[in-house]
Write a protein that binds this DNA or RNA. Structure first.
Lengths: 354, 354
DNA sequence: AAATTTCTGATTTACGTACATCAGAAAAGC
DNA sequence: GCTTTTCTGATGTACGTAAATCAGAAATTT
């Protein structure tokens, strides 16, 4: 059986109250006594039973997730995962609220952050827009003792406590490498469809992709970025126009959302020969993989990101360290053949895990 | 605040003891009363506080993981994850023991299973060898009320409670598809290096791979399977010989272990042009990806598998249902560009996760 | 109607920790 | 040596559930 506080008290020859004072850093213990207790803790290999501790203190952690609204399917999936976490959260003495803001809107994000600060939450997770006003708002939150993590898209390292998302430069490089291999010797330029250069994740993916493309045998030409604002209709128009202007187009890298429009444009032009690599496994990209219009999808697991964000925010709120290694989010590659079966409405759960 | 058993008792107008009887399926409650209590539970949306429940019952679940010994790096990684789970397990009132058996040895596996039954464990997870004697032993375990899950390699569905591993036919198809795309129009046959046809995972991967190869444009020729027994030395010899006999070889699919030998043979022959797809992200395959000798690695996350196995075994031991959807293990694809940074000795944790 | 069985209520203890209170001991200051 | 301060022990309650006991009520059998 695991040692308990009673065992420590017995071993150190002190009372339960003293052990409690040492364990919880309360005052009123002489240095020598404290040392004796700490030695007993060490020797017995005591680990606090978190379940019992949480039960006893009955503390709750109010957290807020700030997520862009609109029809971006990845964001909707992220929200679904956050809601799932919210239902589970009462079991973990965490209360999760979800707040919507317009996408790519720094002012709205600032307002939402300030509202959360006023609410006195313990932690905030937000899909960040890269703007000075946002950094300032996050500074206010952290000054108020509120933990802050960026979700999916990052900011400068010094601004937030942690980033829950993938290495987007590496994601861009991966896309570039796959594109180069899939195209092989086939000539022709490649196009890039992005959402907005206002968010860091899109900029980073572009950077990684272009780096590999410049390297790849023969330095393949990358056309000017198409900014679709993650809107399917604009994406459809932009891609349609691009296909018309560049009939020799060999590939398209879609690093943002609005993929339903991209696929519609490809279908309309009858260009199933174009090599397409997109991001995030959502309904449109899944359908694209299945129909063969999309060749590969790079994905970040929204569930992992949400769960990691909750863990990190709680740890920060408790002043505990975060093991960066175990919070790293991987870049998943999907092709038609390793497509996981679609989830039913109940979605997935835990951790767990994983 | 969440409703508690006390709230249910008040709402239903019964005592705590009666609520307890209903909640835990104990006898001694009239049908009408039981219905009243269940309605109160429903209306209040009561969910049992698992932490408090576990604290109160103090039950421990002794589990056994039966893992092949030898130098197979994937199996060693699996064991490391199991050990990690074991250290964490005391926090979750689970005690995990690890038992070694020689690889591909049905008799040894049977002996280990029977020993675990004699020990009176609550659940067993094993990397299964596909043999009738093994199925019989598992039958004995389950007859004794012991939960049994297969790990990595499966058996017939009816034999075990659950399978913690990937869809290996899909993995083979994925490998085939990547191979076909990477090779493009390049002619030449492909070789397959397997461990043993005695384990189902290897057979299934081969089946999926061959199916895609037969389909792929021009029906690429697949040479006879090389059985390396997951031994690097044998793999090296077999691959070396194969390269000598077939200088026009275009690709190699390594669906088992012993990849250190495969890479050594490729290096010796100076054949970095051969397209190589291997399984499991371990030291040799990671090095191969980095050096460019290996083109892609399909991976199953050993940590996810172990954590899933623990969850499933505990659920089965408690007679709870398993949500298959959320226990599905994905097939990860790694190329040089999305390679996760190597873990330090402390490894990853949770779940968590994940 | 009495005896028996089956159900239900009330109460208590326990799990491991947190936290508060109060009394007594040891150390420090005068 | 006496007071004051600082430390320590003893004790109790709480968290939400599990599980046991015993007494009393209701239903069933005789």
């Amino acid at each position: 059986m695991r040692p308990t506080v009673h065992d420590i008290a017995a071993k150190a020859g002190v009372s339960l109250a003293t052990v409690d004072r040492v364990l919880n850093g309360r005052p009123g213990v002489r240095a020598v006594t404290r040392a004796r207790v700490e030695e007993a803790i060490e020797r017995l290999g005591y680990v606090r039973d978190v379940a019992a501790a949480n039960l006893a203190k009955g503390r709750v952690y109010p957290l807020v997730f700030i997520i862009p609204e609109g029809e971006n399917p990845f964001m909707r999936g992220l929200e679904a995962e956050a809601r799932l976490a919210a239902t589970r959260s009462s079991l973990e003495r965490t209360r999760i609220a979800i707040v919507h803001v317009p996408p790519f809107d720094a002012d709205a994000l600032v307002t939402a952050i300030d509202a959360a600060i006023a609410d006195g939450v313990a932690g905030i997770a937000a899909v960040a827009v890269d703007a000075p006003a946002v950094a300032a708002a996050i500074g206010r939150a952290r000054a108020a003792g509120i933990a802050f993590v960026t979700l999916v898209s990052d900011l400068a390292v010094s601004v937030r406590d942690h980033f829950c998302g993938v290495d987007n430069v590496a994601a861009g490089r991966t896309a570039g490498s796959l594109m180069a291999r899939f195209l092989g010797a086939r000539p022709g330029p490649v196009a890039v469809l992005a959402g907005s250069m206002l968010v860091r994740d899109h900029r980073e993916r572009l950077e990684g992709f272009c780096a590999v493309m410049a390297d790849a045998g023969g330095a393949r030409r990358v056309l000017d970025v198409l900014e679709g604002q993650d809107d399917p209709e604009r994406a459809r128009a932009l891609v349609g126009q691009c296909l018309a202007v560049h009939p020799e187009l060999a590939g398209i890298y879609s690093l943002g959302a609005g993929n339903a429009g991209l696929i519609a444009a490809l279908e309309a032009a009858g260009r199933s020969d174009v090599c397409v690599i997109a991001h995030e496994l959502t309904e449109p990209t899944r359908a694209g993989l299945e129909s063969g219009l999309v060749d590969a999808v790079l994905n970040q697991d929204a569930g992992h990101e949400v769960r990691s964000a909750v863990r990190v925010l709680r740890a920060k709120a408790d002043g505990l360290p975060v093991i960066a290694e175990q919070e790293r989010i991987r870049i998943d590659i999907f092709i038609k053949e390793n497509l996981p079966p679609p989830l039913d409405d109940t979605g997935s759960a835990r951790t767990a895990e994983a």
